[in-house]
Computed example of a mutant assay.
Amino acid sequence: MKEIMAVVRMNKTNATKKALIEAGVAGFTAIKVLGRGKPVEDEAVIQERKNKLLEMAVHESIDAEEAERQVVSFLDGSRLFPRRLFTILAHDDDVPRIIEAITKANKTENNVGDGTIFVMPIADAVRVRTGEAGEAAIW
């Protein structure tokens, strides 16, 4: 038995839910979280993202100086990013299929921030309603 934890972009929540259901996942939990991943060090990627975010900010009702401050704080690591954390319990044999589904639903061409997947062993699980334990409790 394994626990799969996937941290994904907020705008990929529905795509991830759909991918998990299509992969045959019986149940999962999703919660809103804040965090940040590995800082981007490629100046070209940073500048490209900065330009895109500042362009988007032009349509907001904030001045250019405030927009610049907010964008820089996102890119320099001083702010946390809103994300969605999915938790799935799975049989060992199902893990590769689930990881593939999550990856396919979340991969972008942005070169940063597509998410992270963690896989951990689970000692036991118990279904409260039926009392089923172990492998029988997760699907």
Rank of each mutant, 00 (worst) to 15 (best):
R83I: 03
F74S: 10
L75R: 04
R84Y: 01
D114N: 10
A90E: 09
L54A: 12
E100V: 13
Q47S: 14
A57D: 01
F81Q: 09
L89S: 05
G134S: 13
L54V: 09
K32H: 01
K52S: 14
A44F: 01
E68G: 14
V45L: 15
G24M: 09
I98G: 12
E100P: 06
V95S: 09
G131Q: 10
G134C: 14
E43S: 14
L54E: 02
V119E: 00
K18D: 05
N11M: 01
E43P: 05
A26P: 03
E100G: 12
A101R: 07
I21K: 08
E43M: 11
V33I: 15
R97G: 14
R127P: 13
E68H: 10
N110L: 15
I4Y: 06
T29H: 02
G131D: 13
R127G: 14
M5N: 09
S61I: 02
K50Q: 10
R36N: 02
F81A: 14
G115Y: 06
V128K: 07
H59G: 11
N11L: 11
D114C: 08
D92R: 04
A67H: 09
R84Q: 14
I88R: 06
A44Y: 00
G24N: 04
T108Y: 07
A19T: 03
M1R: 12
E48I: 03
T103W: 08
G134H: 11
E48A: 14
H59W: 00
V119M: 08
N111Q: 07
S73I: 07
A15Y: 01
